[in-house]
Design a protein around this nucleic acid. Structure first.
Length: 304
DNA sequence: CGGCGTCAAGTATCG
DNA sequence: CGATACTTGACGCCG
C-alpha cells in the first residue's frame, strides 16, 4: 500500500511543470523548461522517499507542448539520459508514478480531430514512461469523456478508439469513474468490452452511483486490475469540501473520515492518491494513520 | 517588482 | 450565452 499526492510539492522551492506561452515558443525555452522540470521532479521524488510517500502523480506539463505540433524538438533523445536516470531512481526506491492527462483528452468525441489530439497526448505521456524504463504498472489515468446526449454511442466510440491505440498506451491506460457522467457501473462497461482497468475515485462515487455500498464498489473496481500487467490497484481518495459545490475537494485531510474509509478496504491492497488541496501535508498525516491502523508495514523511520 | 489579463487543448452545467 | 469547473495557477506584459 502506497500513499501519494498529485503533481505539486508545496514544501520545495521548485516546480516540475514550468512552462511558457505558445507565442513565445523556442527550442531554447523548451530545453530550459524540460531540464528544470526533470531536475525538480528528481528533487520531489527524493523528498517523497525520505518521507515514505511512495506514490506520485507527475504533471502533464513535464515536457511543455509535449503533443503539440509546434514542438518538433527531439526531446526524447536529447533528454534520454535524464529520463532514464529518474526512472532508475523510481525503480531503485520502489516508487510508483502515474499521469492524469487533463480534460482535453477525450477518446469518445464525435470530432476526429479531438480524438487524434487526445491520442497524441497519451502517446506523449506514455513515451515519457517508456523513456524512463518503467513498466505497464505505471498508469495513464483518464475519464471516459463526454456523453453527447447518448451514452450508448459514446461508449461504442470509446471502445472503437481504444482498439486503435498503440500498445504503449493501451497497456497503461486506466479509466476513472467521474462525478457527473460516467459512474463506476458505466466504466465497467468499458472494462467488460476491452479489459481496461477501472481506477476508483471514492468522492466521485459518492456523487454518482447506483446504490453500491463503498466496500462493494471498491471490490468491484479492484477486480478489474490484472495483477501482473497492472500491479496493485490505484485509487483516488478525497472528501467533500464542507459547504461547497458537490464534488469540490476538501482543503485538508479529515482524519476521522479517512479512517472510516479505510475500513471499507477489508484487506484489499491499493495505492491511494490523495486529491487534497494541501498536498504532501495531508499525505504525511495519511501515512501516519495508515501506520496506526497497521496498513503500512514498511518505512518504520519516517521523518516529517 | 506588483497587479492582473490571459493562457493549446473539451464538455457540460449553472447563472 | 458567458462564466465556471475539472488533477494543478502561473506566465508575462504593463505600469
Amino acid at each position: 500500500m502506497k500513499i501519494g499526492y498529485p503533481c505539486v510539492n508545496d514544501s520545495l522551492p521548485c516546480t516540475s511543470t514550468s512552462t511558457f506561452r505558445l507565442a513565445s515558443y523556442s527550442e531554447e525555452r523548451l530545453v530550459q523548461a524540460v531540464s528544470n522540470n526533470l531536475a525538480c521532479l528528481q528533487r520531489i521524488l527524493e523528498y517523497n522517499v525520505s518521507h515514505g510517500l511512495l506514490f506520485f502523480r507527475m504533471g502533464s506539463g513535464i515536457v511543455p507542448f509535449g503533443s503539440h505540433p509546434v514542438n518538433t524538438f527531439p526531446w526524447q533523445t536529447h533528454f534520454a539520459a535524464e529520463l532514464k536516470s529518474v526512472g532508475d531512481y523510481i525503480k531503485a526506491n520502489n516508487l510508483r508514478v502515474s499521469f492524469h492527462p487533463d480534460q482535453f483528452v477525450v477518446l469518445n468525441s464525435p470530432d476526429p480531430g479531438i480524438v487524434e489530439r487526445s491520442v497524441q497526448e497519451l502517446v506523449y505521456q506514455g513515451s515519457v514512461l517508456d523513456l524512463m524504463g518503467l513498466d505497464s504498472t505505471m498508469k495513464l489515468q483518464i475519464h471516459a469523456g463526454g456523453l453527447y446526449g447518448d451514452m450508448e454511442s459514446a461508449l461504442t466510440r470509446w471502445i472503437a478508439t481504444y482498439h486503435t491505440l498503440p500498445e504503449a498506451v493501451k497497456a497503461r491506460l486506466v479509466v476513472e469513474n467521474d462525478d457527473r457522467l460516467y459512474s463506476l457501473r458505466s466504466c465497467l462497461r468499458l472494462h467488460e468490452a476491452v479489459g481496461v482497468p477501472i481506477l476508483f475515485d471514492n468522492l466521485h462515487h459518492e456523487c454518482l452511483n447506483h446504490g453500491e455500498p463503498m466496500a462493494e464498489a471498491l471490490a468491484l473496481a479492484f477486480s478489474t486490475w490484472h495483477p501482473q500487467r497492472d500491479g496493485v490497484p490505484m485509487m483516488d481518495y478525497s472528501a467533500q469540501s464542507v459547504g461547497e459545490r458537490k464534488g469540490k475537494h476538501t482543503a485538508s485531510l479529515d482524519e476521522a473520515l479517512f479512517r472510516e474509509f479505510l475500513t471499507h478496504l477489508h484487506g484489499h491492497d491499493a495505492d491511494i492518491m490523495l486529491e487534497i488541496k494541501d498536498k504532501e501535508a495531508s499525505a504525511h498525516r495519511a501515512c501516519a494513520i495508515m501506520h496506526d491502523v497497521g496498513l503500512l508495514v514498511h518505512a518504520a523511520s519516517v521523518s516529517v
